[in-house]
Design a protein around this nucleic acid. Structure first.
Lengths: 232, 232
DNA sequence: CGGTGCCTTGAACTCACTCAACGCGCGTGG
DNA sequence: CCACGCGCGTTGAGTGAGTTCAAGGCACCG
């Protein structure tokens, strides 16, 4: 890594309050790597070699079983992944692939565990990160077990609109195929579910989404603070 | 709490390596409470007042949405719950009820957060606890999204047998109704799925389960280390 | 112009849910 | 001691949500 890059990485939320010697030692051992789209960054079942932090781009976390595959989450700049596997020194539970060309900071697991053991601020930061991640997955599990696919879509539209300014207009951040998998349904079902939202004032053409009747959509979606809550 | 009880609590895995002054201050503020069966200990949406540690008994973590309800997990002695909500100072995402008469240690959230901020060993213990919990939920999410209900049951039988000694015989740890909800299916579906396991050498009568053809069952279940792995 | 990939649409099918009835074991009260 | 009610589980039948397979439309890109 170049000097200016190291300086850039220092400001990562993961590192706030952490002794600069520890930040330094982790960053010195790290790589800032570029990945083209469609490339696999990590494979489930492999030992956790690196803590990954997305600098820019977009990464899909997914998992396969038999001949099936599902996406667990899609994450962007600022997010780190496989924290849990790294500090427990276990194998990855998910695979990761780049959906867009991405820059990712790779911090060797060994260095992370050392700092985790020596620096209280860092272990606290990781604990908070993990607590937030834990709650996100719990929400997602409830989303899957308690809602129909139409409800999941309606709520996704609602929260995604909220996250992108609440203007009632936004662009899908990735392909519909990926969205379908993220929401836990076949692509065909997503198509039909999108069509089923028309009576509720949601128009989707290409990647453009437009909500014209927020009340009707909310009535269908029944958003819940303990499932959709935007703040961890 | 009585003196001998405090001594008993000191040895909790959550407290290993933690400065005894901090353990002391948390325990002094805590309650060791008994709950009869069927009683609700926490309700989702409420602010996190206490970190709960099960001393003995059995607690069901569940969640409701609209007119539906699902159980997230069933946990026993030694396990703590709602760690994440406590250290983030947020609301509970799940409700908890006692399935059996239970004793639970209630540590005030405020005291936990103070020790978390001051004691490095404690924050590390919590981070590791959270990392393990995170991985469990990720496994469960994959279990739900990637497997059919028959596969989920087959794998549950397999791992539960493994956890209870791998003898091929064990007792269901709770009602079938709860198991069905835990596995994400209606009670009727569990009944039929149990019947569907007979050709694979699984006999269930009442709460007694007997596996006579481990190979056949394993062939059906296709257990995967990244879903069923018993060590976090 | 003719691919190729993404999405949509249609139709058949499957898995799981719902509703309803029934059996069974158990505890309660007559 | 028996009758009854109740909770739990099973079984059956009908329905519905979601999957799968197949074909077709459409935009983008050579």
């Amino acid at each position: 890594m170049r000097h200016d890059e190291i300086e850039e990485m220092r400001t990562l939320p993961l590192f706030v309050g952490v002794a600069s010697t520890h930040v330094e030692s982790m960053l010195r051992a790290s790589f800032l790597q570029r990945f083209p789209a469609h490339v696999e960054l990590a494979r489930e079942g492999d030992p956790a070699d690196f803590l990954h932090v997305i600098i820019d781009g977009q990464i899909e976390m997914y998992s396969a079983y038999r001949d099936r595959e599902t996406t667990i989450s899609v994450i962007g700049p600022g997010h780190s992944f496989i924290v849990a596997a790294v500090i427990l020194d276990r194998v990855y539970l998910k695979s990761a692939r780049a959906l867009l060309p991405s820059r990712v900071l790779l911090i060797p697991a060994e260095a992370v565990r050392r700092s985790f053991g020596e620096d209280a601020a860092f272990s606290r930061a990781l604990a908070l990160e993990l607590a937030g991640a834990y709650r996100s997955v719990v929400r997602e599990l409830k989303n899957q077990k308690l809602r129909s696919s139409l409800e999941r879509l309606a709520n996704w539209v609602l929260t995604h609109d909220g996250e992108s300014g609440g203007t009632g207009r936004f662009e899908l951040p990735f392909d519909k195929k990926v969205l379908a998998s993220r929401l836990g349904m076949a692509p065909e079902v997503l198509s039909r579910s999108i069509a089923a939202l028309i009576p509720y004032g949601v128009k989707v053409s290409g990647r453009a989404v437009e909500i014209s009747d927020m009340g009707a959509l909310t009535g269908l979606a029944h958003p819940s603070p303990t499932i959709d809550g935007t703040v961890s």
